[in-house]
Nucleic acid binder design. Structure first.
Lengths: 122, 122
DNA sequence: GATATATTCAACCGATTGGTTAAATATTTA
DNA sequence: TAAATATTTAACCAATCGGTTGAATATATC
């Protein structure tokens, strides 16, 4: 199930929800986070990506599919192999999410700070 | 399975990996993201948290358990109910992760920029 | 002490996950 | 054209997921 297939039948908010679901799910696995870091550094073929992991090529291929569906990587066919590279875009959405939480968090810290100052004054 | 039970038998890196796994897994569900946003704003009892969702109280209780195991919320027993509040701490780790990816991403953009400048010069 | 309230626990369900192996598909090379 | 290489697909497996319902456990109130 690729996100682009669903595009015309979802509202914007549903789309953001779906994107965050798939991005965060893709990141919630240490093998995939490691793959993404390596692809951030430089492009790799599927075989190169799979090399360091103690699992089958098919398993790595599946991990790449999860990253690709989350739009975190792009694959381009080059001869008989695929060149994979990272796509940062979806991480901006995650960044924004974290910022939202931080805004609330800091607002509450301010409140607490204010409370302490008030208490000291009394 | 709570992270604190595993603490003595894991290395620091394994611990970070486990924490990111559980934090990102907890965030990869829109109900839990929504709960966390509301708890960021203010403390709530389990019943209050459950109110807006069209699912059983037990289901919400499970979501809260996932958030609690990821250390994203704290629960305190107050009389016969529980007061829940957000804990921002684990999100710092996520923030750092995103920053790592961004560092690579920007380094590559710089390379590309450099390449374009070079090409124009020729 | 009986009853109402707040929450969790246990058992179950169908769907999804992360892995496997073996076969299929493309493409290049000999 | 045959063989080697790169990758995906299909079928399977056990574990986990997100939900349900009904019973259990605390605590507060009548």
């Amino acid at each position: 199930m690729n996100i682009s297939n669903l595009f015309p039948i979802l509202t914007f908010n549903q789309l953001v929800k779906y994107m965050l679901d798939s991005t965060l799910h893709a990141l919630a696995d240490s093998t995939r986070r490691s793959i993404l870091l390596r692809l951030g550094e430089k492009e790799h073929s599927v075989n190169e990506i799979a090399e360091p992991y103690e699992m089958s090529l098919a398993a790595v291929s599946k991990h790449l599919k999860v990253l690709e569906n989350a739009n975190l990587i792009k694959k381009e066919k080059v001869g008989r192999s695929y060149s994979c590279r990272m796509n940062y875009e979806p991480l901006k959405e995650v960044q924004e999410l974290i910022n939202e939480y931080r805004a609330f968090w800091e607002a509450r810290l301010d409140e607490l700070d204010h409370f302490i100052t008030q208490t000291k004054k009394d």
